[in-house]
Amino acid sequence: MVHPNLSTEKHLLLRKKADWVWTETLRIHARSPETRVASSLSPIEMLVCLYYGGLLAFDPRNPRWEARDRLIISKGHGSICMYPILADLGYFAMSELERVCKLDSFLGGIPDPVIPGYETVNGSLGHGPGVACGMAVALKRKQSRNKVFVMVGDGELDEGAVWEAIMFAGHHRLDNLVMLVDSNAKCMLGHSREIMNVFPLEPKFEAFGWLTMTVDGHDIPAVYAALAECAASGPAQPRVLIANTVKGRGVPSLERDPLCHIRTLGQQEIAELIGGGCGPRV
């Protein structure tokens, strides 16, 4: 299904941005090998659709703008792709991307809320959903129409605190809360299914009272349409978008490696990837 608001031009723009973010994420990794590159390549299309597709209210000149939608990146270390997006949108200078993980840069290997555009402490997994629940309740009490988005990884769903939050959101019918699952099906030490099989996700969320949508997380029209539906008014239920993604998307050596989470790419491989026509283009 293609969303009526996603014109061909917009689709092309989002694809172009996603490709650019992919390239910049690899460039950051080339300069800063401490970054987690594989898990930062899987959520790119979701984040690009939110930020460039008109689905998220934000103001780079005023990151704490009261009328913004809140976005929590709970899988913090897997979001280095946020750095080029935030720089491109004007949250900070593009030149900061040169200094990721360097002495006194505010852009670390795991993002912290000292970065304009980040709401909370991220990377210690399992905290985002509960904090997002608190924000969603608060926005309702403040009569705000803004949404709260929270991105988690499928491996992060092993954390018990996530399910406390999922239960809470369902019980309180937080229809202003959208959880984005970057379901790349790999944890740090291999395939999620083999380590702790949390799948299938849909019936679990449905049992807790959530409205569930599943898409190919790299298919921009599908991601856009699902996000637009999540953000639209509808039943009094929290929404979850389960995006089936590929960890290390566009990098063959990462895509086929179950241990790609902890892999660092060499300079030559990155140069060939960026220059050699490889990449996530659909």
């Binding site: 709401e119 909370t120 905290h127 959903p129 509960g130 904090v131 997002a132 629940c133 608190g134 924000m135 969603a136 309740v137 608060a138 926005l139 009490r141 403040k142 018990g160 605190a161 406390e164 939050a165 239960m167 809470f168 309180h172």
Partner: peptide, 26 residues
């Protein structure tokens, strides 16, 4: 009732929900 929630027997979520509310000024 609009400013009271029993989060259930879930202390981890208690703190996380408290954080979200506090970030929004409560």
């Amino acid at each position: 009732p609009d400013r009271f929630i029993n989060v259930g027997i879930a202390e981890q979520n208690l703190i996380n929900v408290a954080t979200g509310l506090a970030l929004e000024g409560f």
